[in-house]
Simulated assay, not measured.
Amino acid sequence: MLSDASPSALLLLLLLLVAALYLLAPPLHPPFPRSATRPLTQVPISVNYHFTRRCNKSCGFCFHTATTSHIEPLPNQKEALRLLAAAGMRKINFAGGEPFLYPKPLGAMLAFCKRELALESVSIVTNGSLVREAFLREHAEDLDILAVSCDSFHEETNVAIGRGEGDQVAQLYRIAGWCRKYGVLFKLNTVVNRLNVREDMNAHVAALKPFRWKCFQVLIVQGENDSAERLRDGNKFTISDGEFDEFCERHRGQACLVPEPNRLMAKSYLILDEYLRFLDRTGKQPSRSILEVGVQRALESVYWDEESFLERGGLYDWARPEGEKGGCGGASVEELDW
């Protein structure tokens, strides 16, 4: 009987009753779907820093076009990188435009990120035309990954796209060899589009042995490549989801293949632009500069699809290898005559 219970037992019973009522009561507000919620804080684990829009190529589907020639002074860039590292950045990818138009500041930023910020991974994405062995010889210890864009192994297709001048494939093989020589992970990027969607690239990919082969479905970005009024009109290069799937199926034997359809790519990249602002791929304005408002406030003002970032494999083994790093396998680079 309750009259025989001790005061402590009665208190415990009362607490249990209150807890049960709390758990059974309906919420005061209906829960939001997960896609509509945002965490109070976000961690910019992997950042793509497009520090210039200038480029020496004219790819017809480019979605980060040369609308400005602005580039921040190197001290500002280093301070922004320091802020990002303090906010949790573990990987930085330098992109453009074409980053090798500025080899000296690029090399300085590589060293800063590796030696002072001690980032896990530092990478570059390039069209490859300006890469020189001397750069890799000097900066290889500060560079984990070098990604080279190549959309076709037929030079006439590269020329039609606007990426090639008739020598891109030979240069690609040279870069792959340099990366192996200096211990840098070699990565291959391909934009699957109307001009290359039926191409069979298996033999070349097997020979090049990239540790990752990213295949992107050509993407239309509002305000960049969405009409004839822009610097680039990517609409004439678009393909269907089914055509993209067929391309990936043709190359499914390549263990390094990482497909990125539009649904995963569009909003899953955290991009810092040449003004040190985060871009918003939903059509909103970019954030203010992280030097002005800090990383967290800048992040809160844009949309970054973190779930798609994880789904497309945004987290992977991205550190420079201690020894030989395997790729897709197959023939050696030297076995194909260029």
Rank of each mutant, 00 (worst) to 15 (best):
H50R: 09
H50L: 02
F51R: 00
T52K: 04
T52E: 09
T52F: 03
R53Q: 13
R54Q: 15
R54C: 14
R54P: 10
C55H: 07
K57Q: 13
K57R: 14
S58D: 12
C59K: 01
C62I: 03
F63C: 09
F63N: 06
A66V: 06
T67E: 14
S69W: 14
S69K: 10
P73G: 06
P73Q: 08
P73F: 07
L74P: 00
P75T: 07
P75D: 13
P75F: 09
Q77F: 06
Q77K: 12
E79S: 10
A80S: 12
A80D: 04
L81G: 05
L81R: 04
L81T: 04
L83W: 02
L83K: 09
L84D: 11
L84E: 11
L84I: 12
A86N: 13
G88M: 04
M89A: 13
M89E: 04
M89W: 07
M89I: 05
R90H: 13
R90M: 09
K91W: 11
K91S: 12
I92G: 12
N93D: 10
F94E: 07
A95N: 12
G96I: 08
G97F: 05
E98I: 01
E98N: 04
E98H: 07
P99R: 05
P99L: 01
F100Q: 02
F100M: 06
F100R: 01
Y102F: 15
L106N: 02
L106E: 01
A108K: 10
M109S: 09
L110A: 02
F112M: 00
F112N: 00
C113A: 14
C113S: 14
E116T: 07
E116L: 09
L119G: 02
E120T: 12
E120Q: 10
S121H: 03
I124Y: 02
I124L: 09
N127R: 00
S129W: 03
L130D: 02
R132E: 15
E133Y: 13
E133A: 12
